[in-house]
């Protein structure tokens, strides 16, 4: 009971945080002044696009760490963490790619370019689709967890290398993550930008907690069913 109470609090908190983030991003945040007026509304996507990207990387990092912990301690808990987090990561990766693509149309006048970040994110999406394909084609639970953990480690480690290798081609993506220059944002925007990132991180924690809770429930049902049949 205590656990589900904690979940309710977490759910409520992240609902409020996301609502506030929406308000701040869409209404409170000032227009960007250093770009042509036609694409100023589109610029607001930064408050969703960047947090999504950040959360997806956070999620895959959690999967990576949980995979190592699973191999180390052989405990179901870490496998549940790994797969739950990877699922959320896929959702946010897709959100990142789609929101970026929508922004790219007015800003770059194309839905798609082979920019390092775009390409890397597409590869990341493919990596974790492969991760779930691997899981899906193994029936035995412990082997599934072991193999997925190994793949989760390889996949995560390859991402920075992929990014580096594609980056050495020309890039037109704005370099935003430079904290020294206020993330390249104007007055009144930086705080909102940071807030939306925090709100999305809280959303990630909430989704992960719910997902893990659900997985434990599913495990319990499976165990009960086995006992009833056996």
């Amino acid at each position: 009971m205590n656990r589900s109470k904690g979940l309710t609090i977490l759910n409520t908190l992240s609902f409020i945080a996301i609502m506030v983030a929406l308000y701040l991003a869409l209404i409170q945040a000032p227009d960007a002044t250093n770009i042509v007026p036609e694409i100023r509304p589109a610029q607001r996507i930064i408050y969703f696009h960047v947090p999504s990207a950040w959360v997806s990387m956070l999620a895959f990092f959690v999967t990576f760490v949980a995979s190592i912990l699973y191999l180390r301690y052989d405990s179901l808990r870490w496998d549940i963490w790994a797969r739950s987090s990877a699922e959320i990561g896929i959702a946010f990766t897709a959100a990142t790619i789609i929101s970026g693509s929508i922004w790219a149309k007015p800003a770059w006048n194309t839905w798609w370019t082979w920019d390092p970040r775009l390409t890397t994110y597409t590869i990341v999406l493919l990596l974790y689709i492969a991760y779930f394909m691997l899981r899906g084609s193994i029936d035995e639970p412990s082997r599934q967890a072991r193999f997925a953990s190994v793949y989760g480690i390889f996949a995560f480690l390859s991402v920075p290398l992929t990014f580096m290798s594609i980056r050495w081609w020309n890039t037109i993506h704005p370099v935003i993550l430079d904290p020294r220059a206020d993330f390249g944002l104007g007055a009144g925007m930086t705080q909102i930008f940071i807030f939306t990132n925090l709100a999305f991180s809280l959303l990630f924690v909430t989704l992960l907690a719910n997902r893990i809770q659900l997985e434990w429930g599913a495990e319990r049902v499976a165990a009960l069913r086995e006992r009833l049949q056996g």
């Binding site: 590869i123 493919l126 990596l127 492969a130 394909m133 691997l134 084609s137 193994i138 029936d139 082997r143 193999f147 190994v150 793949y151 390889f154 996949a155 390859s158 290398l161 992929t162 580096m164 290798s165």
Partner: peptide, 23 residues
Amino acid sequence: ALAVNTRAREVLLPVLLFPVLLP
């Protein structure tokens, strides 16, 4: 070695391998 122990076997190998190998 991963792929050989799955149902999909060699079909899965390129899907697993190429995204990691891209760099």
